[in-house]
C-alpha cells in the first residue's frame, strides 16, 4: 500500500506509485471523475475546505492518523506531492 515502487501503468497513463493510486481512487470518488494523474491539483479539480475534510478523513482511514496534515494539502496540493508526504510520514 505504501511502497514507492511504481506499479504497472494503466493504459495511456504514466505509472503511479501505489500510494498515488490509492489517492487517485479517493479523488475519483470525491470529485466524480474518471481520470486522475500524478500532476493533478486538488484545488484545480474542485477541492474546497469541505472536500479537504472528506479527503483527509479517507487518507486517515486508509493510511494512519496524522500522515497528512491539512497544511501539507494546502501548501502543495498535487497528487504526487501528497503521496510523497504520506510515504515519508509512513516510512
Amino acid at each position: 500500500m505504501t511502497s514507492q515502487e511504481p506499479t504497472a501503468p494503466e493504459p495511456g497513463a504514466p505509472a503511479l506509485t501505489s500510494t498515488e493510486k490509492a489517492l487517485a481512487d479517493i479523488w475519483r470518488s470525491l470529485f466524480g471523475i474518471d481520470e486522475v494523474s500524478a500532476d493533478d491539483n486538488f484545488f484545480a479539480l474542485g477541492g474546497n475546505s469541505l472536500t479537504a475534510i472528506r479527503f483527509l478523513a479517507r487518507v486517515e482511514e486508509q493510511f494512519a492518523e496524522d500522515v497528512l496534515p491539512p497544511e501539507t494539502l494546502y501548501e502543495d496540493p498535487r497528487l504526487a506531492s501528497l503521496a510523497q508526504a504520506i510515504d515519508t510520514a509512513m516510512a
Binding site: L50, P69, P70
Partner: peptide, 16 residues
C-alpha cells in the same frame, strides 16, 4: 457562512 464540518475541524480552522 462556513460549513459546520469545517468550523468543527480545529486543525483546518487554525489553517484557514
Amino acid at each position: 457562512g462556513v460549513p459546520p464540518e469545517v468550523l468543527d475541524n480545529q486543525p483546518l480552522m487554525d489553517l484557514l
